[in-house]
Design a protein around this nucleic acid. Sequence first.
DNA 1: TGGAAACTTTGAGCGCGATCAAACAGCAGA
DNA 2: TCTGCTGTTTGATCGCGCTCAAAGTTTCCA
Lengths: 231, 231
Amino acid sequence: MNTPDPSLIASMPLFADFDREALAEFLGLGQSRLVVRSQHVFSQDQEAEAFYLLLDGYVRIELVRPNGEVVIVRFASTGELMGIAPALGRDTYPANSVAVVDCVVLGWPCSVWADTVRRYPSFATAASQTIGTRLQEAHDRIAEMATAQVEQRIASALLRLANQSGRKTSDGILIDFPISRQDLSEMTGTTLHTVSRTLSAWERRNIVRSGRKRIEILSGHQLLLIAEGRT
Amino acid sequence: MNTPDPSLIASMPLFADFDREALAEFLGLGQSRLVVRSQHVFSQDQEAEAFYLLLDGYVRIELVRPNGEVVIVRFASTGELMGIAPALGRDTYPANSVAVVDCVVLGWPCSVWADTVRRYPSFATAASQTIGTRLQEAHDRIAEMATAQVEQRIASALLRLANQSGRKTSDGILIDFPISRQDLSEMTGTTLHTVSRTLSAWERRNIVRSGRKRIEILSGHQLLLIAEGRT
DNA sequence: TGGAAACTTTGAGCGCGATCAAACAGCAGA
DNA sequence: TCTGCTGTTTGATCGCGCTCAAAGTTTCCA
């Protein structure tokens, strides 16, 4: 498991203007790695040796504050770039990246970044837009944290998860990876107690159905109303 | 006032690998503009026609939420890029940009972005790192909003302002542009009342000295202790 | 110079959500 | 199958910071 099948990733916008040889060459520079559940892909403040493409699975990107409290920045899913410290002009990782299911990642030494960006405009553009989108989302979340009540924030977080990693079921949308009340509280800046109470209340209203590390959205519509503050 | 003096900006890292003609040519494509206090440089959701370099002054970058509440994302000061929608793959501005003092901005049509990035690696790299830094800061603020108390958040906001736009005085550091209690509350997700009470309490402890739209930090050390939550 | 507009201060009361506490349920490994 | 661990639920209480209210102060403009 050293060089993955090019066809898996040839279709990504990131590699739009790589020809077959270029892609093969580029993939040859990387190394794939299996990361089992709850292990780190990389860790905050660790020297950034490589940047990664998530080939399969889900990882949690989390920030650890000086006092030890953990905040979840986002969940990344298959196909996303992670740990692109070189693009940010950093030489350490700004966050932890933790596998929430067994994952496969493809990693390249940071030293190849500059050259790749220079040679392949599609790569540079796609990477830039990825960062741009994340910045946008981060600003939206700041605004949300600043103005919205806890219940609204939990609803927004669930909707975001559903959009990004939802799997359609017969009754609604299931978040496609194990996620605990604690996780949700770390995404929204509240406590697992409040998340639990909120989900229980929603369960009574048939808005969600949830279990141990499992959440299914039955009424995205209701959830949207809650998120927008007109309950 | 159509084409500014190249020497003003030649020293910026952004333009590190522009030679004299290249810089002159590039500046010729842009147009400078005076923006008086409280006027918008650009507005949220407006079609992004141009990106800007702030040549002089300070602007407030603010997000307006669907319900009309305003959140201040950051203050930009002289020398910063703003409204670089093309880098983010957007065709509208994601936020308002409002002059807090009379400003001079230099604007280029978005159409020149792609070409500029392709021809001048220093420009691409500097822009990328600018966005990276902002992403980093945004994540830090999310974490802060999620875990820190109001007093800590106000302290952090002041320290950030002091670092970015502080002017040394005989007694401490003065925030170099007019900033109200309301502004500070919109940066930290609280109310102007709470900000006022907090500043009053700090004034009694000789940590700050403040007046109408004017804040001077007397003890950055104390403020840091408060921000870190070990008061 | 007068008056209005913008900004700031301070008080009183209350509610959201944190904290403290304890029991319960699902899952993995012995 | 039992046992311990991890995650969830629910109750009781408390306090931070919002809301409502009103007065004070600075600046600007007519």
